[in-house]
Structures are given as C-alpha cells and as structure tokens.
Design a protein around this nucleic acid. Structure first.
Length: 233
DNA sequence: CCCTGATTCGC
DNA sequence: GCGAATCAGG
C-alpha cells in the first residue's frame, strides 16, 4: 500500500481527531501502526498526548538535586526543529468516553430512560459540567456504561442536515464527534453539531459522555462485556 | 502482559 | 520516504 492523498488525508483527520495509531492503521488497512506513526511524523503532525513523553530535559536533575542551580542555560539555543504547540491544557476535561457496544438484547422492557415518572414534583438535582451541560442524575441514567448511541434511533437532531452526513473526513475541532450508528454500517456518521468549547462533543452529547458517578448501588449488568472484539469487518 | 507514541536506521 | 525494530511510559 502506498500513501495516496486520500490515505494521507484520512490519516491526518484521524490523527488530529484523537484516534490512536493502531486505529488509524486498522482503518486504512495494509499498514502497520508503526507505519502510521512514522508517516504522521514525516507529515509534521506533532504528537498529541503521548504516554512516553512527560519529562523535560532536566526533570531528573531537579528531582535528584532539588535546589540544584542551573547556571548555564543561555547558550545560543537556536530552536531549530519543531516547535511544539503543546496542547494547552484547556478545561478540566474529564475522562474520555468509553464507548462500549451494548447490543440491546431484549432484557428490560423499553428504555424509559429519560422519561422516568417521578413521584414527587421535586426538582432533580443535577451537576453542571463546564460549558453548561447537565450531567444525568444517578436516577435517570440509562445504561451503566455509556454505550454507543442506540442504533437507528439516531437523529435527535432538530433538522435536516442528515442530508449531508458528517463523515470521518468532515471532522474538525469545532464539530461534535459523537458517533451515530456504527462503523461499517451505511449510515454511520458523526453528530456534527458545534462543540461545547474545550470538548470533543456538543453540549448535548457532553451530557451523555460525562455522567455523574452513581452510587455503585444497583449495578444492572455485572458483566455486560461483549468480549471477543467487535471486529465488524 | 497489554497498550501508547517516539525514535532509530537500513532499505 | 518508508516502516520494522526498538525504546520507554502507562
């Protein structure tokens, strides 16, 4: 396989949207994770949060010698290579979403989910996340683990931009990357709404992605794990 | 062990 | 330019 413009573009988009090198490699097919990383670097795509790169040059020195004086910092220091555009730690950014495939077996009838009859008209207490999204309160959470959005039941979207579905290649920093449908399916696409600044999703989907922890009490499905990779192709 | 991304270096 | 091998942190 060679790096055609299309493949490079896909690589760029995915890399920039946070996909791991492995995912990208798998998506592209015919290339290894290393190939993707190598290419990304050659393209000048600067590393995003890398696990292995946390120290600064003299972090150790500082640790070893707490008050160690560093008298010689001002050499010519040409700063030739890349200039890191280190990701500016935006807001608190919670943990990334865990998108687990659920597969609605049959189980409990209906997803009363959101519309839960509340006996008393008392207001539900919800915490508010950055940007103003409301986290679901413990009592109104649907599935324990955020599953991929329900199949089919897709567009809760107010209108017709379904016509131009947001595909992987349309992703950028300003639009919601919440996946609708499943990869490999014909109608798989992304939300595409304006993002809640600082998050990868729109305000509405942030509400789904970042939920308040529930007491650990009634844990519906102890082992809801599908296992065996969901390799849909 | 698994996963990451970074780097090196022969091709 | 490419990517396997290797490194190194989580």
């Amino acid at each position: 396989m060679s790096w055609t413009d299309e493949r490079i573009d896909t690589l760029r988009k995915m890399w920039e949207s946070g996909s791991t090198a492995s995912q990208i490699a798998e998506e592209l097919g015919g290339v290894s994770r290393n190939a993707v990383i190598g290419k990304a670097h050659r393209l000048g795509l600067q590393s995003r949060p890398s696990p292995v790169k946390a120290n600064e040059p003299d972090a150790k020195a500082a640790a070893a010698a707490p008050a160690a004086p560093k008298p010689a910092p001002p050499p010519p220091a040409p700063k030739p290579p890349v200039e890191r555009v280190a990701a500016p730690p935006p807001p608190p950014a919670p943990a990334p979403v865990v998108i687990a495939d659920d597969e609605d077996e049959d189980d409990d009838g209906e997803d009363v989910a959101v519309a839960r009859p509340v006996a008393a008209p008392q207001p539900i207490m919800r915490s508010v996340g950055p940007g103003g999204f409301l986290r679901q309160a413990p009592g109104e959470q649907q599935a324990p683990i955020t599953p991929a959005p329900p199949r089919r039941l897709v567009p809760a979207k107010p209108s017709a931009d379904m016509a131009g579905k947001t595909t992987l290649l349309d992703l950028n920093d300003k639009i919601c990357k919440w996946p609708l449908g499943h990869p490999g399916e014909p109608d798989f696409h992304f939300c595409g709404e304006k993002v809640n600044p600082g998050f990868p999703y729109c305000v509405a989907h942030c509400g789904h992605a970042y939920q308040a922890q529930l007491p650990r009490r009634d844990r519906r499905p102890p082992p809801p794990l599908p296992f065996g990779g969901v390799r849909a192709r």
